[in-house]
């Protein structure tokens, strides 16, 4: 088992390959993540996404068009709980630079509307005036899947892009062990896994606590009785969307839906659903 990690997209990518060495595969993976970040980062002024947000329309690369389509499909699937047009709300809440540079400020947070119009026709992407895209979460899931696909050419592999985990193939142990916290580890045989929560990536504006999970229905950081959700999906993108969906839904609905997930409530309870035993 060979491991490799590096910083990209504002988080740490961890690559695991069941092979004695995978230097070349790791190098290719890093290059691919860098390429994808150059497309999807909202913090790089010269990225494709920044150009789209600036101009309101773009003839995009295949990857950007694909991620935006995935995001729109997720918005449809979750009834708007997952929304790529939370950019301005995130910026208003203070997440206007890479998270490493976000700090407490005296300026008050401002709120913005979400659920803006986005159309994708072939590779042509057009935004409703007044709206911009943030592809942070789904972009990491997309990248994790892409890298897992690359590494799978070498051997069974696992990719973790912060909270988003993608796997290909099955290791000798029979499952990929992914820790959810100090006491709970999930074994993943296929599909993806992702965590969304407000217990990290927090800051204060004018003394008011902020976090990066914007509820599109209010344009403000979400208020639920959950602080973290780890969800299992058909792939990392699906898991990322599902984790956010359940986080915004709250514990009651999440328990009723009984999808494979680990819920951590604000009062410190850890609940497993969907047959995770």
């Amino acid at each position: 088992m060979t491991k490799h990690d590096f910083r990209a997209m504002g988080t740490t990518f961890e690559l695991v390959v069941e092979a004695p060495a995978a230097d070349r595969a790791f190098a290719e993976a890093e290059a691919e993540v860098e390429r994808l970040e150059q497309i999807m980062s909202r913090f790089r002024p010269d990225s494709e996404l920044s150009q789209l947000n600036r101009d309101g329309a773009i003839d995009a690369s295949q990857d950007l068009a694909e991620v935006v389509e995935l995001a729109l499909a997720a918005r449809e699937r979750t009834g708007g709980r997952f929304d790529p047009t939370v950019h301005d709300a995130l910026v208003g809440a203070g997440y206007d630079r890479t998270f490493d540079d976000v700090g407490d400020t005296a300026a008050a947070a401002t709120w913005s509307r979400c659920r803006g119009g986005v159309t994708v026709t072939g590779r042509r992407i057009e935004l409703e005036p007044g709206f911009k895209l943030d592809l942070g979460g789904i972009g990491k899931g997309f990248a994790a899947e892409r890298i897992a696909q690359l590494l799978a050419l070498t051997a069974p592999s696992l990719v973790s892009a912060g909270g988003d985990v993608a796997v290909r193939g099955v290791p000798a142990e029979g499952t990929w062990a992914v820790a959810v916290d100090d006491t709970l580890t999930l074994g993943l045989t296929h599909g993806g896994l992702a965590t969304s929560g407000c217990d990290r990536r927090r800051w204060r504006r004018a003394g008011v606590e902020q976090h990066h999970l914007i509820d599109p229905s209010t344009g403000r950081p979400a208020e639920t009785d959950l602080i973290r959700v780890t969800a299992v999906g058909t792939d990392a993108v699906d898991a990322e969307v599902l984790a956010k969906d359940l986080f915004f839904a709250g514990s009651l609905e999440a328990l009723e839906r009984d999808l494979p997930a680990v819920l951590v409530t604000a009062d410190g309870r850890t609940l497993t659903t969907g047959g995770l035993t």
């Binding site: 988080t11 973790s160 062990a177 074994g187 990536r201």
Partner: peptide, 22 residues
């Protein structure tokens, strides 16, 4: 077999990675 089985279950193996908030 993989498609029929549940994709995840709780295990006691030492973790390879830790999932954190993305």
């Amino acid at each position: 077999a993989a498609a029929a089985a549940a994709p995840a279950r709780v295990v006691t193996l030492p973790p390879l990675v830790i999932t954190k908030t993305s």
